[in-house]
């Protein structure tokens, strides 16, 4: 039952159109059989390939075998490029248009309109990823609270431009979806300033290696280090106005034990680096870089 549900969930929106296109290509193959044998074989090859790939993808034992061998592949199993879905649909659409053009302009206009209505109804604009809404909905109340704190602080000091922030990895990813004014220091910015990034990354590795406590598992080390995000001394080098930090004292029940030899006082650290604490939520601290 689970396998069937998975297929229903992952089934492509274009599947009906795709199967119709495959059938149309098969008809084309029959039409070309006497006129142009090479082209007819091409169409037959493509339509047969499409049907075989579609059936194999749909076949639960194949799915079970592949995911048993490679569990990580379940997410990418139905990568519909492999079915040649887009070329099949577009070739069929173009050939249908050509056929309709010979028949008359009215039909051609109707076919073209139908094609684009289907695209518009079933597709989304590629540059607005489908998960955006999901991510935004997944922002916790506390995350929304800290984003609102920043926006309010920026507004109070009359800053209408982009707000550069650094924080926990996932929080940064969510920030840019919460409000377009947020500009997390991540990815593209790093690509533009590679020297800064290289230095930072190496420092991060060294810092993380130092935290490799004896007997600690990789997972709990990772969880603890997420609280720090980057070594504190690196914050001063980052060109960002706001830093969001998990308050270590609130984050871990065993804070005292973990930091007993290495007391981490976030407020003192960031004050020394020219930041001031401008707000807090239950588990997070917000710092703003003082100008000058």
């Amino acid at each position: 039952m689970e396998v069937i549900l998975l297929f229903m969930k992952m089934e492509d929106k274009y599947w009906g159109l795709f199967l119709a296109a495959l059938f149309f290509l098969f008809v084309l193959c029959l039409m070309y059989k006497d006129r142009d044998e090479k082209k007819a074989r091409n169409y037959l090859f493509l339509s047969l390939y499409g049907v075989i790939a579609y059936l194999l993808f749909l076949c639960p034992p194949v799915y079970a075998a592949v995911t048993k061998l490679c569990p990580q592949l379940s997410g990418y199993y139905e990568l519909s490029h492999v079915q040649m879905m887009v070329p099949v649909m577009v070739i069929a659409a173009v050939m249908a248009l050509e056929a309709a053009r010979k028949e008359g302009k009215g039909r051609m206009a109707g076919l073209l309109a139908g094609f684009f209505v289907l695209l518009a109804v079933t597709g989304d604009f590629a540059y607005v990823p489908a998960e955006d809404a999901k991510w935004q909905a997944e922002c916790s109340l506390e995350e929304k609270e800290v984003f609102d704190l920043i926006l309010r602080h920026a507004k109070d000091r009359g800053d209408d431009g982009k707000i550069r922030i650094w924080g926990m990895e996932e929080l940064m990813a969510k920030s840019r979806l919460y409000d377009s004014d947020f500009q997390p220091l991540y990815g593209k910015d790093i690509g533009v300033s590679p020297e800064k990034y290289s230095a930072l990354q190496q420092a991060m590795y060294q810092c993380y290696s130092a935290y490799d406590v004896v007997g600690g598992t990789a997972i709990n080390i990772k969880d603890r280090l997420d609280a720090l995000s980057v070594p504190p001394h690196q914050y001063a080098e980052l060109d960002c106005e706001y830093v969001i930090l998990h308050d270590p004292k609130k984050q871990f029940d065993d804070y005292e034990e973990f930091f007993k030899d290495d007391e981490f006082d976030a407020v003192s650290y960031f004050s020394a680096l020219g930041y001031e604490a401008v707000g807090r939520t239950e588990h997070m601290l917000l710092f703003y870089r003082q100008e000058g």
Binding site: M85, V86, T122, G123, D124, F125, A126, Y127, P129, A130
Partner: peptide
């Protein structure tokens, strides 16, 4: 450009 209907879509 307009076929991004799920994260693994070819587009």
């Amino acid at each position: 450009m307009i076929g991004n209907y799920y994260v693994f879509s070819p587009e």
